[in-house]
Simulated scan of single mutants.
Amino acid sequence: MNSVRYDADKGTGVAVVTLNRPERLNAIDVEMARELGGLWREVRFDDSVRAVVLTGAGERAFSTGIDRGVVVPQPSSPYMQDDPLLSIGPKANDLWKPVVAAVRGMACGGAFYLLGESEFVVADTTATFFDPHTTYGMVSAYESVLMAQRMPYGEVARMMLMGAAERISAQRAHAIGLVSELTEPGAALDAAVRCATVVAGSPAEAVQGTVRALWAAREAACAQAFAQAPHLIALGNLPTEGQAELFAGRRSAGRFRVR
């Protein structure tokens, strides 16, 4: 793999999956999307791996979502959509081993496809969370659905509608429950691995059954909302040229909301 790094410790039963495009803030291109999908499906067959930690390389970002340089042709029908990010998460690939996300730096936009399919999130104090879709003339559909399962409605609505104008600090994310544990800078990965090691030490069948039960509580709502997403996006998105114009004129980083 070129865009994803995979390190498994058979002694602890924990594997670390690292998004490995730090020069692009771990933005997800088509190659990374394919590698992630293939990796999750392979991990299903490795019984020595009982828990996974998902993180991003470098200090600046967990992931900034889809790479703006990626061109994904779309069908003209609002009932069909080719979204490469729909297949990047563990649940989308039928993996029911627990996944703990470790976030350092920015996590925004398409990164929520991955955070939304993780069991819980550990972050350090440099982490920030935001969704710039509306600022650049795009509907935040799948991201909003996934985050609405993890955050109070008013919090996720504010994040999605404020777009690039406001970023949620790690402290605020912890206060509203998006982040389960807050660490010092650079310590999120170690903390996530410690949690994953504890989880991996329990009987695998019980752990995976619990993961499946937890997801069952969410998936019906997600499936119904996802069914609405393609035509909402088709109706609400600006043409590609309009999005590019807004993106090219993007302002400096928005204000940080700590409280």
Rank of each mutant, 00 (worst) to 15 (best):
W96P: 02
P90F: 05
D83M: 01
V100E: 06
S77D: 15
D82L: 11
V100M: 05
G89P: 03
P78S: 12
D82A: 09
L95P: 05
R104V: 01
R104Q: 05
I88E: 04
G89W: 03
P75D: 14
D82V: 11
L86M: 08
P78Q: 10
D94Y: 04
A101R: 05
V100K: 01
L85A: 03
V72W: 07
G89Q: 05
V71D: 15
K97T: 08
S87Q: 02
M80T: 15
D83S: 07
S77N: 14
V99A: 03
P78C: 09
V72Y: 07
S76H: 15
L85D: 02
S87C: 03
Y79R: 12
N93V: 07
A102E: 05
P84Y: 00
S87P: 01
P84N: 00
P90S: 14
P84K: 00
P90D: 06
P90W: 04
Q81R: 15
M80S: 15
D94P: 02
P98H: 03
S77M: 14
V72F: 04
R104N: 02
D94E: 11
Q74L: 13
W96A: 10
G89H: 08
P75S: 12
Q81Y: 15
A101I: 09
P84I: 03
D83F: 06
R104P: 01
P84A: 00
R104F: 01
M80V: 13
W96L: 08
Q74G: 09
S87M: 03
L95M: 11
